[in-house]
């Protein structure tokens, strides 16, 4: 059963945390569903946002990591501040608020028939994961899938079961994982994501690259993609901004006349280049 808070878009719907999974030392996944009935508070397509409210503490905007049908909404959240620090303290059974879905989401329809190249760094894999899983769920709609993901260390890699097991079993799929520095027991690639991307040198033809990660990674990945011949129309990224309302009213997440919460957070690079360079 879906609820709607369209009449009161700033008032959250209460949900219950049904599971918490420790992804890395500072990232936890929270799985939530409705309190008084089965189901999830709303449907949320890949790349869309939800305001997650630890009601007595604060609200923060997160890209939904995955919606599993009527079972749950998943949010992978890194502990970086006051709200996320408090969220990392909660236990299963905690009631949280959510409002949404907000934003435009990934262009899953536009990308049909394309080869997909997902490039993520750190917690940046969390938003991408909704699109990656969507592709696998609708496998026939997409061509070859390459997932390039890097983190500081092995421990800091999110969604390890998927990276090292589940996604490898998918058809026409390659997963490239790298960590910043060598460490004992790690036999995989070592180095930063942009350099690894150039090593892999993926084919540009009929390919869409979807990028999310820390700003410095995004900057060098975009340069590398350009060097490899990707046009701006072949590159998608999803932006992060401080947000309070989520509905294009409170003002702070603007880039030029765009509100990232409402008009974004997903942009093709050619769209982004039309905007003032404040992202």
């Amino acid at each position: 059963m879906h609820k709607c808070n369209c009449e009161q878009p700033l008032v959250p719907i209460m949900v219950e945390v049904i599971d918490i999974k420790e992804e890395t030392p500072d990232v936890k996944s929270f799985f939530v569903k409705n309190i008084d009935s089965n189901g999830v508070p709303f449907n949320i397509e890949p790349g869309k946002l939800a305001m997650v409210s630890h009601v007595p503490v604060g609200e923060g905007m997160f890209s939904c990591t995955w919606q599993e049908g009527d079972e749950y909404l998943q949010f992978a959240i890194k502990n970086v501040g006051l709200l996320t620090g408090e969220l990392h303290q909660i236990e299963v059974g905690q009631k949280l608020g959510v409002r949404g879905p907000y934003g435009n989401g990934f262009p899953v329809q536009d990308c049909k028939g394309k080869n997909m190249l997902f490039i993520g760094g750190g917690i940046g894999l969390a938003p991408l994961r909704s699109f990656i899983k969507y592709c696998f769920k609708n496998r026939a709609d997409y061509g070859k899938i390459d997932i390039l993901y890097g983190s500081r260390s092995y421990a800091d890699l999110c969604f390890k079961e998927e990276l090292f097991e589940l996604w490898l079993q998918e058809k026409d799929t390659r997963v490239h994982v790298t960590i910043d520095n060598p460490e004992e027991g790690w036999g995989g690639h070592v180095g930063f994501v942009p350099a690894y991307l150039e090593e892999i040198n993926p084919a540009t033809e009929n390919t869409i690259a979807v990028v999310c990660g820390p700003p410095i990674m995004i900057k060098f990945v975009l340069q590398a993609l350009e060097k490899m011949g990707f046009s701006d129309e072949q590159v998608i990224t999803t932006l992060e901004m401080r947000m309070k309302c989520g509905i294009g009213k409170c003002g702070r997440c603007n880039i030029g006349s765009e509100y990232v919460c409402l008009d974004g957070p997903v942009y093709y690079l050619n769209q982004l280049k039309q905007l003032p360079p404040e992202w």
């Binding site: 923060g60 992060e240 901004m241 309070k244 702070r252």
Partner: peptide
């Protein structure tokens, strides 16, 4: 709130456009 303040756009992770 005011767009004149540094906290207005400061993200929890430290970034600020």
């Amino acid at each position: 709130d005011s767009c004149m303040y540094e906290e207005y756009t400061r993200e929890a992770g430290g970034g600020n456009p």
